[in-house]
């Protein structure tokens, strides 16, 4: 059974007098354990699709089932709870809560899920080590480089054992070397632990890492290739 089943997702918004179709009847099935990259130029609809898959945005029409949950029938709070228990996010930048240390940022989601303190701190430390940030536990975001911050974001996204990790341009603010390392890490976790990733990016190194490459244009999927 597919982890994500999106069918006919459409979303439009008004820009002046004209109607812009951000998504135009997008259908996509993503199986468990996939590493999907949504590629395409700016404005092609990849971030809109990613936000919809994460229950952050709602389509005008279509249906969407993620991890067996009909996301579009959920209330605002139900969607928040769904994200907390099933999803992990990595954004382009400003991924972390500024006043929390790396360890606290990772542990925060676990705390929201009600995990006991000692257990969540141990888990946070384990995931920080997993992403190569052992020794950085007590640093705040402004004491880390952009690449290190993104690694903390990946650790946070993965620490709660989500069904799906959604990443929006995770390498956009990183230099090519750091970006390549981050993608290698994500790919490693996908292969070793079977975690499902859906990543929106127009970075060639990310696109090259895709096991499933979805190319979008003008709100439509124009190409889908298995790597």
């Amino acid at each position: 059974m597919a982890l994500i089943r999106a069918d006919g997702l459409s979303k439009g918004y008004r820009s002046g007098d004209s109607l812009v179709r951000a998504l135009d009847g997008v259908s996509l099935d993503v199986p468990q354990g996939a590493f999907v990259v949504l590629a395409g130029r700016s404005g092609s609809g990849k971030t809109t699709l990613l936000n919809m898959l994460g229950g952050l945005d709602r389509p005008d029409s279509g249906s969407l089932v993620v991890a067996g949950h009909d996301v579009l029938r959920m209330s605002r709070d139900e969607r928040a709870a769904f994200r907390l228990h099933h999803l992990g996010f990595v954004f382009q930048a400003y991924n972390l809560i500024r006043v929390l240390t790396a360890r606290e940022n990772v542990a925060y989601v676990l705390q929201l899920r009600g995990m006991e303190k000692r257990q969540r701190l141990a888990l946070a430390d384990r995931w920080l080590a997993e992403v190569g940030l052992q020794g950085f536990e007590h640093r705040r975001p402004d004491q880390m480089s952009g690449g290190q911050q993104q690694r903390v974001a990946v650790a946070r996204a993965l620490a709660a054992s989500p069904d799906l990790v959604l990443a929006d341009e995770p390498t956009a603010n990183l230099d090519s070397h750091t970006g390549a390392n981050l993608i290698a890490l994500m790919r490693h976790l996908n292969e070793q632990q079977g975690i499902t990733f859906v990543t929106a990016s127009h970075d060639p190194s990310v696109i090259a890492a895709a096991r499933t490459l979805v190319t979008m244009q003008d709100g439509k999927i124009v190409d889908l290739r298995e790597g």
Partner: peptide, 16 residues
Amino acid sequence: IREFGLMGAMGVRSSQ
């Protein structure tokens, strides 16, 4: 604002 958006995306409820 962006931090609040981030927290919302992580699953923090409006009431929280």
